[in-house]
Amino acid sequence: MEYIKPFKRILLVGCNECVTVCAAGGRKEVGLLASGLHMAVLKSGATIEIREHTLERQCDPEYVEELVPMIDGVEAVMSMACGCGVQEIARRFKNKPVFPALNTKFMGASERQGVWSERCQGCGDCLLGMTGGICPIARCAKQLMNGPCGGSTGGHCEIGEDTDCAWALIWERLKALGQIERYVEITPAKDWRPGGGSGPRKIIREDLAE
């Protein structure tokens, strides 16, 4: 709300990829937020015009080009994509303020309809092959590399009953796979450089890049 207060005309942009799938920033949520913002502004005694548009993907410049004919008519843009989308729009339209409408939290999987859990932190050095397909980086609160801490009780993390201990899960899984020897192997200290430790990351596929 604070972001958009000074403006009379804004463009609310959704994204038909990941945020649609997790019901956060697709056409439907765009509509709901537009209505909600409109009402909130009306209620405060002001008026606002909110235009809605949903792009196929906000993180690809070609799709973002679609906004060109709309952009001049508005004073600011609000993006319902993940941080990538927000930044891509901001990059493309340098003279328009762009605001995020979502807090991008994590990369996760859906446990069931409407329930998502964090599964990956993009550390750049995957060790799922060693840990029975369960990631101790994303799923252990302490990101321990060699077994659980003392707070693990009854398969739960000391954070709370709702959080499974990643290492307990790894142990069960390895047992089931008949690979308990993996558990005993000592994993050396993790190299965090590929995980962002040496600044913003970039991938260049020589064969695709032009």
Partner: peptide, 18 residues
């Protein structure tokens, strides 16, 4: 509803109501 008010009475009344 405050929205009804805002739409019907214009911004100033709505501000008063708010």
């Amino acid at each position: 509803s405050p929205i009804h008010l805002a739409l019907a009475g214009g911004a100033s009344e709505a501000r008063k109501a708010a």
